[in-house]
Design a protein around this nucleic acid. Sequence first.
RNA 1: GGAGAGGUGACCGAGUGGUUGAAGGUGCAGCACUGGAAAUGCUGUGUGCGUCUCGCGCGUACCGAGGGUUCGAAUCCCUCCCUCUCCGCCA
Length: 413
Amino acid sequence: MIDIKILRTDPERVKANCARRGTDIDIDALFELDKSYLQLLQDVEGIRAQRNELADECKNNPDAREQMKTLKQELSAKEQQLGEIKAKVEEGLAWLPNFLDDSVPDGHGDEDNFQIATWGEMPTFDFEARDHQALGEQLDIIDTKRGAKVAQSGFYYWKGQGAQLAAALFFWTQQELIKRGFTLFFSPCAAKQQTLFGTGYLPFFADQTYNLESEDLSLIGTSEQTLVAYHSDETLTAAELPYCYTAFTPCFRTEAGSYGKETRGIFRVHQFHKVEQIVFCMPDESPKYHQMCQDNEQALMELLGLPYRVVNVCVGDMGAPGYKKFDIEAWFPGHGGYREVTSNTNLTDFQSRRLGIRYNDGGGGKGFVHTISATAVTDRVACAIMENFQDADGCVTVPEVLRPYTGFDRLTP
RNA sequence: GGAGAGGUGACCGAGUGGUUGAAGGUGCAGCACUGGAAAUGCUGUGUGCGUCUCGCGCGUACCGAGGGUUCGAAUCCCUCCCUCUCCGCCA
């Protein structure tokens, strides 16, 4: 949610932002609607003031009670009208995308993202590199067939050493983040509509959500939803910020509209697993903590020894709630290209405004905190490990940092 | 799942139809007292929205949420949500 005051005082800025985002919303109409809302609001409050004044008199003046009856009719008619306009304004406001940082590149899709860093050396093989699906089948550690049998296409099993590798990766990552000052959570994996709305997943990504029948609950698409909403309707003490939270959860996505894309292997699936980084901070510090999350992500990749590049995500590839976003794309030799493994978004006050997450510095300074939402690792990182560290015989060398948790140093049939 | 109790400001806790935005207490802040502190005393201490001759004034809303009764509701009625206790079931 953007600050409605910006719409009131500088509608041109909102218009320009929507234009750059390719969002087709009639800002002028919304501006006028809000204007009529404000007028009516004043009107209603004026009548309420009259009513309250009259109410005192009613105690011992029957005439006043008669006046009150007519006043009340007038009031309730206008209050209803006010409620209707307010709902329309809020609906319009809910669809407005966040503003963008000046450094966000123009563009329509991921092909327009701007590479800003690379790290590591791409491995060279004297055999044809297999992708994670081929390796997973050969080693019998990824089972997509049975995932489809038991659940649906798009679900899968990690099995045996593969499950051990994934478990080690996720556990190690949590340890690394705890070392860096993050508080670990076990989170609900379902959330109500208001939570999804507040984090910006509704209305923007409504078709990506699995909803539970007859319940005001959806499966989470990311623990960002539950970790950010953890503080909804709370005022945080400025001196205690930042709060850095992490959780490991499954993430559920319908992937509606993306059938046929990236379907090989377990790159794009209905359920994946993620260790997340969430930061609540003061507004002027969000660029700093956005970078901190980025440094963490890159450190993890480097400790694992995975070659990667960082891209500054362009307008067209960034969701409406995002203000600035970096993706890390790992090198996938079996696939023969870089593929997105993590993303790191500064959402500024877009979520905190919807969720009512404020700060108070005790000296009169108050406002909405900023939130950062960044991946630490997902299953995709395990896939990258398989593809990068494969041998001619189809075995995979386990990164050293994970060996204490896997208990073995090679994935073997 | 069955039975009961309850949801009031940072916290505890009064308040069952009319200056109650809300007593009292605790906490917190400032001042006084002190060599300093404790204790004590005094003063102050919610948030959102709107408005403005931006004075931190004025108006309005908020006592779990939403509706209703009434001239008027924290106080009465209805629905929902949540919490607690006991029983049952259960990883």
